Simulated assay, not measured.
Amino acid sequence: MAKKGVLGNGTNVWILHGTVPTLTKMACISELIFGDDSAAEVDNTCLEEVEVRTNDYGLSTPGEGSLKINTDPNNATHVIALDLADRKELVGIYVGWGDGVSIPALTGGIVELPEDRTWSWCTAILRKNSVVIGLDALNNHTIPFKRQSKVTDEFRVGL
């Protein structure tokens, strides 16, 4: 039977940050949620209507998402992410799906994504949350973010 879909296993996450743009491959992200957008509703109902209001969609409001790490103080990328979140930095989040292994390139501050892997990306402002500590569990942070753009999906070309 043919495989259907793409497993989350093998997914990689990069964050574009800094005044001199730096693309950092994050190590050991355990979950990433982009969040859903909402759209304004613009009422277009005529005064003659007696039963039902009608409307169109207006502008979208980007959603809120998060990335989760099992926080390891020896993992430099975890420390970077927490520092960016503490400073409420605007970053680019680039997610390479598990259907490939190619890596993005940074050229003149622009991220170039290879076509032989599926990508999802957005810009977002990170925000720091407190550590979660539990019995028989790894200490972790869920780093929330407010997207400043839609999520763009660029699907893999060819098989």
Score class of each variant (00 low, 15 high):
Gly109Lys: 01
Ser102Ala: 13
Arg117Gln: 13
Val111Ser: 04
Ile125Asn: 10
Arg127Asp: 10
Glu115Lys: 06
Thr19Ala: 03
Leu7Trp: 02
Val20Ser: 02
Leu126Cys: 13
Gly96His: 00
Leu7Pro: 02
Asn74Cys: 10
Ser30Glu: 07
Arg117Glu: 11
Thr54Met: 07
Val42Arg: 05
Ile133Val: 15
Arg53Tyr: 13
Thr107Pro: 05
Thr71Ser: 05
Thr118Cys: 05
Ile103Ser: 15
Leu7Met: 04
Thr107Phe: 13
Ile125Thr: 14
Pro62Cys: 03
His17Cys: 03
Thr118Trp: 01
Asn44Lys: 11
Thr77Met: 07
Ser130Asp: 12
Arg156Lys: 15
Leu138His: 08
Pro21Thr: 08
Thr45Tyr: 04
Asn129Val: 04
Phe34Ser: 03
Gly18Glu: 06
Tyr57Gly: 04
Asp83His: 13
Leu82Gln: 07
Gly63Leu: 05
Val52Ser: 13
Ala39Asn: 12
Glu48Cys: 09
Ser38Pro: 04
Asn74His: 09
Ile80Asn: 01
Arg117Trp: 06
Gly158His: 07
Thr11Asp: 04
Gly35Ile: 05
Gly109Leu: 06
Asn140Ser: 14
Pro62Ser: 03
Gly108Gln: 08
Asp86Phe: 14
Glu49Gly: 06
Leu32His: 05
Glu49Val: 06
Met26Arg: 00
Arg87Val: 14
Ala81Cys: 14
Asp37Ser: 14
Gly65Arg: 10
Asn129Ile: 03
Ile103Asp: 14
Asp72Tyr: 09
Ile110Pro: 01
Leu23Gln: 01
Ala76Glu: 14
Val151Glu: 00
Ala81Leu: 15
Lys4His: 13
Met1Lys: 02
Ala2Val: 13
Leu7Ser: 11
Val79Ala: 07
Thr152Pro: 03
Leu106Gly: 13
Gly35Ser: 06
Gly96Asn: 01
Asn70Ile: 03
Cys28Pro: 00
Glu48Phe: 11
Asn44Cys: 07
Ser120Arg: 12
Ser66Trp: 11
Gly109Ser: 12
Arg147Gly: 05
Arg127Leu: 03
Gly58Ala: 10
Gly109Pro: 12
Gly96Val: 07
Gly5Thr: 08
Cys28Gly: 03
Lys68Val: 15
Arg156Gln: 15
Val42Asp: 05
Ile133Leu: 10
Cys28Ile: 05
Val52Arg: 12
Pro144Ser: 05
Pro62Gly: 02
Val6Trp: 02
Trp97Ser: 12
Val95Ile: 13
Val131Gly: 02
Cys28Asn: 08
Asn139Leu: 06
Thr11Asn: 06
Lys3Phe: 07
Thr77Tyr: 01
Ile33Tyr: 04
Val101Leu: 13
Ala2Phe: 10
Lys3Trp: 08
